[in-house]
């Protein structure tokens, strides 16, 4: 390859020149060179003949098949309709899923806020009381050790108190304890109960706050004990 008029350009340059894929300045220099170089002009002419021939071949008409056209177009229309329907369904499904998830999140958030901010009506208005007498770790011969919450529940109200859910929390974590069937405390009745949760083999009672929450039909009762 050369940029001097007296020297020749490489054949690959003429191939790119023919395709118009060279920068304008280079193209201009090569065009100038062509005027005085018959051998480069012959290379370009040969490439050009091949290229024009290929372009002419590409113009040949394709055989017509009207039936095939009709069939292909029908298949195409069916494929597109099917794909659009599927996309629409997926979009609907996606939207419904997103809405359900959002609703769930909002409900969970709302419930959380309510739990944190609403004072327990049972605690605020009623005469029902729960007292956490003591917490201790008991070790039996066969069963794994457990952390026990010794609780006294007194119902000073005129209507029965139903305990639906019990949640215990301590420095080691929070756990919901099962209540087989709703635990009922009659008006004026005082009840003693032990709620326990299993703990590890070598667990010791840690200092800190131990808390029990009784969820009742009317609200919540909470008792706390601090272990020094």
């Amino acid at each position: 390859m050369s940029t001097q008029a007296s020297e020749h350009y490489a054949p690959q340059d003429w191939s790119a020149y023919l395709d118009g894929e060279l920068p304008a300045a280079r193209r201009a220099a090569m065009r100038e060179h062509l005027r005085q170089c018959p051998s480069c002009a012959a290379i370009l002419r040969s490439f050009e003949a091949v290229q024009r021939g290929a372009e002419q071949l590409a113009q040949e008409p394709a055989p017509t098949r009207p039936q095939l056209r009709t069939r292909l177009v029908a298949v195409g229309a069916a494929v597109i309709t099917q794909s659009r329907t599927r996309r629409r369904w997926l979009l609907c499904l996606g939207t419904v899923l997103v809405l359900v998830i959002l609703a769930g999140l909002v409900a969970a958030l709302w419930h959380g806020i309510e739990q944190r901010s609403t004072p327990s009506p049972a605690v605020a208005d009623s005469k029902a009381r729960v007292t956490l007498e003591r917490v201790l770790i008991t070790r039996y011969f066969v069963e794994p050790p457990s952390l026990e919450y010794d609780v006294t529940i007194h119902n000073g109200d005129s209507r029965p108190l139903e305990i639906i859910r019990v949640i215990v929390s301590d420095p080691m974590g929070e756990k919901e304890r099962p209540v087989a069937s709703a635990l009922r405390v009659e008006p004026g009745q005082t009840l003693q109960r032990v709620f326990s949760r299993p703990v590890g083999e070598n667990t010791q009672l840690r200092p800190g706050s131990y808390r029990i929450l009784l969820e009742t039909s009317d609200g919540r009762l909470v008792a706390e004990k601090v272990v020094p």
Partner: peptide, 19 residues
Amino acid sequence: GDPAALGVLYDCYRRPVYY
């Protein structure tokens, strides 16, 4: 998915694709 339009697309590009 308009069949008439798909027919136009087919007619437009059949020759180069076939070539």
